[in-house]
Simulated assay, not measured.
Amino acid sequence: MTARERRLREQANRHQLILATAREMAEEEGWDNVTTRRLADRIEYSQPVLYQHFKNKDAIVHAVATEGFGELTAVLRAACPETGNPRDALHAVARAYAGFAARWPALYQAMLVIDTGEERSDEREPQPLLGVLAQIQQVVEPVAEDRDPRVLAEVVWSAWHGLVTLAGGGRLTVDGTDERLLMLTDALTEPAAQPA
């Protein structure tokens, strides 16, 4: 291994350590308590070393969120059974989504609640969101009938997000989350009643 390769590997390891430690601190204490000074102390690097990797805390939160979208996409993909009843697949993905948000509340906040101020080049969805949306659309499509599967997936995702945010914020009891989640999912994806 050359000196340059070693240096690049060390930089990548430091970068990943910063992200992992920030995420760990946020899960323990909340994002408000994650500062670059405390983060630098925790990983035993100086703040200038942090700034070599990230311009500020928002950039760290944004990077954590980007990783989180990849993780959530993988979780939803794994939850979707290969074959079987489309409604069961939809329910499995809904449960996986809610389970991810409940298990990693600070990560979920970084992904979908906190505004990190990252600039977007246009009005389309940021790339990291697209993998999650694609997984939801995959299980919504078989029950969409004559509705646009993409729009229906966006509506379903919005509803799931609202429910898990309310439960995570203590506005709804956690005990009823699964029942609410399935009821909501069914209400949004049931075929429209035909006029008599």
Rank of each mutant, 00 (worst) to 15 (best):
L188N: 08
G176H: 14
L184N: 00
R37G: 08
G117N: 10
A110P: 01
I18V: 15
D186H: 12
E67P: 09
P81M: 06
G176D: 15
L133G: 02
R6H: 08
E125T: 13
C80S: 05
A92L: 11
G84K: 03
P48F: 11
L172E: 02
E10Q: 14
Y108T: 01
L182C: 14
L182S: 05
A63F: 03
D148K: 15
R87S: 06
L50E: 04
G170Q: 10
R9Y: 09
M183L: 09
D58E: 05
T2G: 14
R4P: 13
N56A: 05
A74C: 01
L17N: 02
A167W: 02
I114C: 12
A187N: 09
T73H: 08
E5C: 09
P195Q: 00
G170H: 07
H91F: 13
Q109V: 01
E154T: 04
R150A: 14
H53W: 06
A94H: 06
T185I: 12
P86W: 06
D122E: 08
T165H: 10
A96H: 05
I43W: 07
T66Y: 04
A74W: 01
L166K: 12
Y97V: 13
G168H: 02
F100K: 02
E141R: 15
A101K: 02
E10R: 15
R124C: 01
D146Y: 10
V64R: 01
R9C: 07
M1A: 06
Q47K: 13
R180N: 01
S46W: 13
L8P: 12
R42V: 11
L184I: 03
P128Q: 11
Q138T: 11
A144T: 13
A167Y: 07
R103M: 13
A74R: 10
P86R: 05
A65H: 01
E119A: 15
D41Q: 14
Q135Y: 06
V164C: 10
A92C: 05
P126D: 04
R37H: 06
G68T: 05
A187H: 10
V61H: 00
P142W: 08
C80N: 12
R23Q: 08
R95T: 02
Q52C: 11
W157A: 00
V140W: 01
A20P: 14
Q11W: 11
G30Q: 01
D175T: 04
P105V: 12
E141D: 12
H62V: 02
G168A: 02
M111S: 07
A3T: 05
G70N: 07
A65G: 02
R124E: 00
E118F: 04
